[in-house]
């Protein structure tokens, strides 16, 4: 299936999580923290740490490690605390 990662088209596979798509794309971080602006990516891998938050189809705060990709998903890095677009 086709998805977009920060505007760039990528091929993803059924059953992949958004975090797997991002790691496969060579990304190790896709969010910045609210205070220090520090990069964050995968940490707990099981949906409890909320470090891997990402914007999917305009909706922020989606846990990349749990969310399965869907055809046409628009995946975007999250900058601090974002409001839904």
């Amino acid at each position: 299936m086709r998805v977009r990662v920060d505007g760039e088209e990528r091929i993803a596979e059924e059953g992949q999580t958004v975090a797997a798509v991002l790691l496969a794309a060579g990304r190790d971080s896709w969010r910045t923290t609210r205070f220090g602006g520090r990069p964050r990516g995968l940490f707990c891998g099981i949906g409890v740490c909320f470090d891997c938050l990402v914007v999917v189809n305009g909706v922020p705060d989606v846990r990349a490690c749990l969310r399965p990709v869907a055809e046409g998903d628009d995946i975007r890095s999250q900058d601090g605390a974002e409001v839904p677009s």
């Binding site: 190790d28 971080s29 990069p39 964050r40 990516g41 995968l42 940490f43 707990c44 891998g45 099981i46 490690c65």
Partner: peptide, 11 residues
């Protein structure tokens, strides 16, 4: 980034 849990790496 690059530091993760053993469970995350395994999953």
């Amino acid at each position: 980034p690059g530091v993760c849990t053993a469970g995350a790496a395994r999953a």
